[in-house]
Simulated assay, not measured.
Amino acid sequence: MRALNRSWRYLMMLSAFAGMLGASAAAELNPAAVTYKLPDQIPWGPVDARGAQNAVVVGDPAKPGFYMVYTKWTKGNHFSRPHFHPNDRYIVVLQGTWYVGSGPKFDPEHGTVAMPAGSFVTHYGKQVHWDGAKNEDAVLLIMGDGPATATAAEEK
Rank of each mutant, 00 (worst) to 15 (best):
K37G: 09
N135E: 15
G146C: 01
I91K: 11
E136K: 05
T71K: 10
G96F: 14
Y67M: 00
G51N: 02
Y99L: 15
T122V: 15
A117N: 09
T112I: 06
Q53E: 10
M20Q: 02
W73T: 05
G22A: 10
V113R: 12
R81D: 12
K75H: 12
V128K: 08
E109S: 06
H85W: 06
V58G: 00
N30G: 05
G118V: 07
D88I: 10
H83C: 08
Y10L: 14
N87V: 02
T122H: 03
G103H: 04
I91N: 10
K134V: 15
G146I: 00
V57W: 08
K126C: 04
G146V: 00
M115P: 04
N77E: 14
M115R: 14
K63V: 00
R89F: 02
G146N: 00
T151L: 06
A26I: 01
M20F: 06
A153I: 01
V113E: 15
P86N: 01
L140K: 03
V93Q: 01
Q41D: 11
N77W: 12
S80P: 02
G19P: 00
Q95R: 15
P116I: 10
S119P: 12
K72C: 02
Y90E: 12
A148M: 05
K72N: 11
K75Y: 06
A32Q: 11
A114M: 07
